[in-house]
Design a protein around this nucleic acid. Structure first.
Length: 306
DNA sequence: AAAACTGGCAACCGCTCGGCG
DNA sequence: ACGCCGAGCGGTTGCCAGTTT
């Protein structure tokens, strides 16, 4: 790349390059240039636009902030749900996950994961990448999100980022998070997303997989508390041993149920995802269920609850 | 009221990949 | 086959506003 040049000219260029936060003038310049010439050729853009920024920096600024369809504001429960689900499937494939959240950038999703999700894991003293944490998320956090989604009366109908209709679903509001999912749910098959797919192991492109919003199948936790304590579709769990999830096989066929047409058609109910009775596991779940309640998670640790 | 701490997020960095000559 | 270059990705850093002590 140009940085490999060792000339004086390069040193001069380097001296001139601006870094740090973008100014309004720089933003305007970038927007204007892209309006005239389109995206791409970022290094050329950086040179020709008059911006004293690297092409890389220009690209990032545009994609993460200036691009018109970039959404601002808090992530909705639906989006959080999707992030949790897709991360459980794909791991830290942020850009891939972002493709399924129209208007959200990989950077934003990554930040969300690091600041919110990993924080929860830290509070609980669990490795955020551990299967135990994933199980806890799946069994407690996600059902709670589902509950929130249900209480907001419309089920999500997230579709892939290529769909032109998604722009209308994500209506920006002048203040705060956008109104979402104002359209009626689309009846398309939900993909089962339960299996964890280690990065690199997949060979299908985002454009061919999960093109529909992947509202996943969750384990029916009522089965945990109604006489099937040690196994659910491969998710092994014994609340009477240590209070922790044990020997799970998250990532294989666990919870990989048949696709369904729509949640509503199936009588999809939040009550299907009732909380387990076990105290210790409840601690995890309670700590997870509401991300705002970090205080509680902190207390859990103080009490040595988990 | 002020210092210390924390969380959220924008931006940067290093690396990899793919296209092209 | 090789090197160059543009583009993209994931990890990390640094700043700033809000909160706590």
């Amino acid at each position: 790349m140009s940085e490999k040049r060792g000339s004086n000219k390069y040193e001069e260029d380097k001296m001139e390059l601006r870094r740090g936060p973008w100014t309004l003038e720089e933003d305007a310049l970038l927007i204007h240039y892209i309006a005239c010439h389109g995206e791409g050729r970022w290094n050329l853009l950086a040179k020709c636009s008059g911006l004293k920024r690297t092409g890389k920096s220009c690209r990032l600024r545009w994609l993460n902030y200036l691009k018109p369809d970039v959404k601002r504001g808090n992530l909705s429960p639906e989006e959080q749900f999707l992030i949790l689900e897709l991360h459980s499937k794909w791991g830290n494939r942020w850009s891939r996950i972002a493709q399924h959240l129209p208007g959200r950038t990989d950077n934003e999703i990554k930040n969300y994961w690091r600041t919110r999700v990993q924080k929860q894991a830290r509070q609980l003293k669990i490795d955020a990448n551990s299967s135990m944490f994933r199980d806890a998320v799946r069994c407690y956090w996600m059902p709670r999100l589902l509950e929130n989604m249900g209480s907001s009366q419309s089920m999500p109908s997230l579709v892939d980022s290529n769909a032109t209709t998604t722009a209308g679903m994500m209506e920006q509001t002048p203040h705060g998070p956008p109104h979402q999912f104002s359209n009626p749910p689309m009846h398309r098959p939900f993909e089962s997303c339960s299996s964890y797919e280690p990065p690199g192991s997949e060979n299908h492109s985002p454009s061919t997989s999960s093109r529909s919003m992947a509202l996943p199948q969750l384990p029916n936790l009522s089965e945990f508390s109604s006489g099937h304590p040690d196994n659910y579709s491969g998710l092994s769990f014994n609340p009477f041993m240590t209070g922790h999830f044990v020997n799970n096989s998250y990532g294989l066929d666990a919870m990989d149920l048949d696709p369904v047409v729509s949640a509503a058609q199936l009588g999809f109910s939040v009550s299907d995802y009732t909380m387990a009775d076990n105290n210790c596991v409840d601690n995890i779940g309670d700590a997870l269920w509401n991300m705002d309640e970090l205080w509680y998670a902190r207390k859990l640790n103080e009490w040595g609850g988990i």
